[in-house]
Design a protein around this nucleic acid. Structure first.
Length: 475
DNA sequence: TTTTGAGTTGTTCGA
DNA sequence: GTCGAACAACTCAAA
């Protein structure tokens, strides 16, 4: 009789779950557990109520899915190693299965767990599950690690067809059901938050989102993905964060779309695939360069002398900078726990290169608000925006918020949704109310906006800040 | 070893 | 308003 513990962490699904499948194949009975890690809940600065709420929804869904198989999912709270020790002793389990995780905290935690149980003669199996291709398998011809996306992608695509299809789910699960420990009361944390997510957790919700995206929107992804006013993206980010959908399922479905002779618009599918490869790339970077978690990827940009003006930071966080597209993005983040990729870039560029604030401040704030906050991807995105990351572009890139606004929210529909005090402005004014004010404050007031009262004056002048940023970066 | 081609998502300037 | 060139001349990865 072999009894195995299946430790769920960022893989809150039954379907095509590598660790779970491995455990089922080699055990007579399994005991699935999820541990609320006290170290994370109590001490981590990057705690996000929206993210925890999503996690709780996903856990409820997972619990129900197990119940349908007459399996009880165990919940406990504490230090993972202690909780697992207790469970192993209580149940006499002879193996522990979980899926690999590449963040430094998780890596340390898992190493300690592995060493402890191996020394006690308990098997430990860490499975590869989170990505299509393992970071250790992608190397340049000289056996170096890639630091530029495009050649990485080219090599990655050579192995695309080798990514396995999802494994069919076993009909029966035999489990050793132990007394269910009370689900920790975390709902209060979520209730205290004003964030109202538009995304629900759980594998069912993930599958529905993916099917809806596959049915139509993926074909328009290339042309529409950059417009935050359109519903053009997959919205799967939080599901990929918590593993409520299998990445192999996504790749397998994409593969078959690309093989279809009649596929309407392969460009949309290919562009979406490329975004998933960006995800693979940033995990790859974190895996091979774990130091990015704590500072600049480019050593020469580690010592920037940021101004770090706290008043500017507060205005940015609150969506009160006087730049409508920036404020709309920040308010979307605050209200829903999610914001469009284009907006993430715009507000990040604005924080670093207009407000001259350390990108790590923004990175942390995003983690505190996002429903999908993922260290590898959030860090990669922020380092890109701050120009400290792997971006190979030779020229210095500073977004112009007004141009970005005109280009990607041309009729201002996104701004009107999240900055309603500007809703009365005509399209041509909404991207820069201050320039209208400079010509005629009365003209602006006739549209219902008194600057400084209804909506703030710009807290900085982009043109001046741009010059300061160039100097600060010594370029 | 040296050379060659190319790099997510840009902006500004001046015609 | 639109368009092409300049930005500044790096670094990576493959040939």
């Amino acid at each position: 009789m072999k009894r195995s513990i299946v430790w769920h962490r960022r893989d809150l699904r039954l379907h095509d779950n590598t660790a779970l499948n491995q455990a089922l194949k080699s055990s007579d009975e399994i005991i699935p557990i999820f541990i609320f890690d006290d170290d994370i809940l109590n001490q981590r600065q990057d705690f996000s109520p929206a993210c925890v709420r999503f996690m709780l929804e996903s856990l409820e869904d997972l619990e129900q899915a197990y119940l349908k198989k007459s399996v009880l999912l165990v919940f406990d709270r504490g230090k993972p190693l202690e909780v697992l020790c207790k469970l192993q002793e209580e149940t006499g389990a002879s193996a522990i299965f979980f899926n690999e995780d590449y963040e430094s905290y998780a890596h340390k935690r898992d190493t300690a767990v592995s060493e402890h149980f191996k020394s006690k003669g308990v098997e430990v199996h860490a499975s590869f599950d989170q990505l299509g291709i393992h970071p250790k398998h992608i190397r340049t011809q000289q056996n170096n690690v890639y630091t530029v996306f495009t050649p990485f992608k080219k090599t990655w695509l050579n192995s695309f067809n080798g990514i396995p299809s999802p494994e069919p789910f076993p009909k029966d699960i035999k489990s050793h059901n132990i007394k269910r420990i009370q689900l920790p009361m975390l709902e209060d944390i979520c209730k205290a938050s004003s964030v109202e997510p538009e995304i629900s957790g759980g594998a069912g919700a993930a599958a529905a989102l993916w099917q809806a995206f596959l049915a139509e929107r993926i074909y328009h992804y290339k042309t529409q993905r950059d417009f935050p006013g359109l519903n053009a993206t997959s919205r799967l980010s939080a599901h990929l964060r918590f593993g409520t959908i299998s990445i192999r399922q996504l790749f397998t479905d994409i593969k078959s779309l690309l093989e279809e002779k009649t596929s309407k618009d392969k460009e949309g599918v290919e562009t979406f695939l490329s975004e998933l490869i960006w995800r693979e790339f940033y995990f790859y970077i974190l895996y091979h360069f774990p130091q990015v978690e704590f500072g600049s990827f480019k050593p020469e940009l580690a010592g920037i002398n940021w101004e770090n003006n706290p008043a500017f930071f507060e205005a940015w966080k609150a969506g009160q900078t006087g730049y409508p597209i920036v404020d709309a993005g920040m308010r979307q983040l605050n209200q829903t726990g999610w914001t469009h990729n284009r907006l993430r870039m715009i507000v990040a560029s604005f924080l670093c290169k207009d407000l001259l604030i350390d990108w790590r401040w923004g990175e942390l704030f995003f983690m505190q608000r996002l429903i999908d906050g993922d260290l590898a991807l959030n860090n990669g995105g922020w380092q890109w925006a701050a120009s400290t990351g792997t971006d190979a572009q030779p020229y210095f890139r500073i977004f112009n918020p007004e141009l970005q606004s005109k280009k990607f929210d041309p009729n201002g529909s996104f701004i009107r949704q999240f900055v309603p005090e500007l809703a009365g402005l005509p399209d041509k004014y909404i991207h820069n109310p201050y320039s209208v004010y400079q010509k005629s404050p009365l003209m602006l007031e006739s549209c219902g906006v008194k600057l400084g009262k209804d909506y703030p004056f710009p807290i900085v002048d982009h043109k001046i800040q741009r010059e300061k940023a160039l100097k600060m970066y010594k370029l």
